[in-house]
Amino acid sequence: MEFFRIENVNKNYSGFQALTDVSLSIDQGQVFGLLGPNGAGKTTLIRIINQITAPDSGAVYFEGKLLGANDIYRIGYLPEERGLYKKMKVGEQALYLAQLKGLDRRTALKRLKFWFQKFEIESWWDKKLQELSKGMQQKVQFICTVLHEPKLLIFDEPFSGFDPINANLLKQEILSLRDKGATIIFSTHNMSSVEEICDHIALINKSKKILDGNINEVRASFKTNTFDVVYRGEFATVEKQLNHGFEILSHKEDDWINSLTIKHSGGNNNELLQLITPHVEIVSFSERIPSMNEVFIRVVENNK
């Protein structure tokens, strides 16, 4: 079910084209990866969704209706450049931000208590923000982002500055928010985290959307029919079998186990297996699916 839609959005900042005809469709409950190199226009797009800036042309729909002023209460935004009032106390600050997002004081207090317990940070309540480390500050900011239980969450580089343990904790929280029904837009340059949590991605480069689709389909579409085979037996016999339509990219011989990488010019995977199984013992056989990292680099390089 479509939850959020961006239609032919354009934005120009006094001569600098930030977005050109960008359209996106985000489904309910999706983790949507918004990718792109620096300066591609991601932040502008996110600001348009947050109604911080308005598009020059195009339209944005939230649950089928044109995005309106009251929708800001249904959106939670964690910007890439984090920031809170340094000299304000943590609890007071969280309460203030929650009230700005439309929560009344009592509800905000109750929910804050819950989150502070969950993250085991109750002792921070009366501390000034500047007394906390950067990672701690980010935890507080994460709570402030999700406290009003928005239906749409936008995370811009949420894991930067976190140690692996806290990054993992945060990842679990993000996924559990999705499980509770939130839709998530996730913008990052860390492609392995995209693979871990995104269902769908869109890639923006130089103000234009150049790639959009389900993450697995996107990756599959960048397959090169390359296989890794690990086997026991003679390399020479294998080589002999693979003289038609195959290209051996590399091979390695060891005492016990040999391995090779083969590029297949066409046909299906079983064909390759049939050719070699009679001659050697297969230990493992796998197709190389390009990582998001490879996809990203290839797409952006080709788009130059």
Binding site: Q51, R82, L100, C144
Partner: peptide
């Protein structure tokens, strides 16, 4: 200046 340099302004003007 404080709000701009702290970058808190982006959070706040996504609410007001």
């Amino acid at each position: 200046s404080e709000e701009k340099q702290n970058r808190i302004v982006e959070v706040i003007i996504s609410s007001v």
